[in-house]
Design a protein around this nucleic acid. Structure first.
Lengths: 333, 333
DNA sequence: CTGAAAGCGCTTACAG
DNA sequence: CTGAAAGCGCTTACAG
């Protein structure tokens, strides 16, 4: 394998000069630089990433921890993964993606061995067991999803409370007084998926203030049973005039359910949901909805993480909520 | 950061002895080993992965190249990613996931810098531009998907030709003589998605032999337009008694389309498709289908890749087709 | 503007 | 069964 010494010899300079030419960390004469460039391209030299990492204590790799929970809807996850990966590459970082079942061990493993310069956690839950090892790590961490205790970590999430208020207010303004809410599965609440109850509680609170009856139900996230559960929920609340769906799997299945029941939107029922624009390229979703912004969240997390890696005193940890935006697609009346 | 010298000092031995205790590459007395273990846990020592990689020329990291094509159906991709990641971890490898738009550069970048010990390529097309840089790399490569030229690379794929014959024979045996085939989008054929035409050609050839009319159409893979395209295809072939769907997006949308049209399966129409078992947890798919085995393909690719990394003369490249298996879910008659 | 040398944290022949 | 030392391929003060 051709190394920096080979290049130095071919160019007739020292190894340090080659290194500085590579990094640009000190001025090099034009002539010398040209000889080095020539040698590099003739020999096909590429810096050995491991050796550079050892010398600089920077790997230029970010860890990405993904958890494939059974109650997670796969198509939604991929958007976050892609967003993080793309944002990282734009800043010169690669992604070490870890899908281990046991997240805390994975965090410890990749941080204590110095495989990564920082860590992004996806699918963060209220009491996430990965937070402690991440706080103990040398490397900074950024979370997508709000945990109970954000200490020492940068946190990014959609403002689910505000999203709920936005939606309830929107329906209230249209005169709806009986509204169904389809939440994530019960299991998501139980394992601490804070986005689920943050949305539900804010919706209930807001509905109460408006004297609206809000019927909150758990939806499903796995087939078979998604259509069945949505049907059962609608059956249970015949008086409802609007449906809020905070459940990826259920909203994906909703068009088929409504067609089957002969329910026209928004004539017979108003529908509002939360999903990302890209989600609507996989599923046929003509509904007014809050944009969940996976791209923006992934990008924010990576950008802050990289700043924290490169600027030692970047300031106190950041907890940032993305402002929900309601996109009106005409599914409410 | 605590390093191997700190451990050696605390345990009262040399650095080499600590290293050998870690690797198990030479016998260590019980007493010495215990002192070392104690020092390691007291100091909280973890081997520095980069330093080890530099010394051993092994990173214990596999590159995973993923391409998010617009005509790809995201839910299906995730299964391959997860399969590769899981199989790698079981063999002690981590995954460097690269989603660059420009695959050939990405392959060159991660291999020439020695960031990885081997590379897995997903979504391989007929004339895949990533193959050349991969062949030129020091590291071995494994592909999921069959390219035109398999030279020098281990290749794994479902036997799409056999899958087509299996399905056509199955329908022929049931007496069908007019069959619709919904293929992947035209763009997949154009960019060299070999699985698309391997399946279609084998199906056409087999149908001709049986004197079956096989009506091959391109389906869609993005909303809006999937339901519409399936409807148009069915409208165009009223005489058909069976439907073969080789298109993830279309099969996911099929239940809604058939319900809307009032078509009962298999009474009015027989349906056969190709998808994985897990795919049926995201979508409601009660159809007889060939299992596409993403788990098995991902696992095979990783296992062979790792053997090729660890056993210098593992033998000639392998091209292995996974045998298609038809799971009868009663959607044909 | 450039070079010689130390150091990053490991592993592994070589020697005993 | 164990140690001293060279080497993996870089970077970066230090010196000129």
């Amino acid at each position: 394998m051709v190394n920096i010494a080979d290049v130095a010899k071919a160019a007739g300079v020292s190894r340090s000069t080659v290194s500085y030419a590579l990094s640009g960390n000190r001025p090099i004469s034009r002539e010398t630089r040209e000889r080095i460039d020539l040698a590099i391209s003739e020999l096909g030299f590429t810096v050995n990433a491991g050796a550079r990492a050892l010398a600089t204590a920077q790997t230029m790799v970010l860890g990405l921890l993904v958890q494939f929970e059974d109650d997670e809807f796969p198509p939604a996850m991929l958007q976050y993964i892609l967003a993080v990966s793309t944002a990282a590459r734009e800043l010169g970082y690669d992604i070490l993606m870890v899908t281990d079942d046991h997240g805390p061990d994975a965090v410890r493993r990749i941080t204590s061995s110095n495989m990564v310069d920082g860590v992004v956690l996806l699918d963060v839950v209220h009491d996430d067991p990965r937070l402690q090892p991440l706080r103990e790590a040398r490397q900074p961490g950024a979370l997508v999803g709000l945990p109970r205790d954000t200490e020492g970590l940068d946190v990014f999430d959609l403002d689910f409370g505000e999203a709920a208020r936005l939606i309830v207010d929107h329906l209230h303004g249209l005169g709806h007084r009986d509204i169904i809410l389809v939440s994530p599965p019960r299991h998501v609440f139980e394992r601490g998926g804070a986005y689920a109850w943050r949305f539900r509680e804010a919706a209930l609170e807001r509905a109460a203030r408006h004297d609206i009856h809000l019927y909150a139900h758990y939806g499903e996230s796995q087939q078979p049973g998604i259509e069945r559960s949505v049907n059962a929920i609608i059956d249970a609340r015949p008086q409802a005039t609007a449906l809020i769906v905070h459940n990826d799997a259920s909203i994906a299945a909703l068009p088929a359910v409504l067609r089957e029941r002969g329910i026209a939107v928004p004539r017979d029922l108003s529908v509002v949901s939360l999903y990302s624009r890209d989600f609507g390229r996989t599923f046929l979703l003509p509904y007014t909805a809050v944009e969940t912004s996976p791209d923006e969240l992934g990008r924010l997390a990576v950008q802050h993480l990289v700043r924290r890696i490169t600027e030692p005193d970047y300031g106190p940890p950041v907890v940032r909520f993305v402002e929900p935006q309601l996109t009106d697609r005409g599914s409410t009346a």
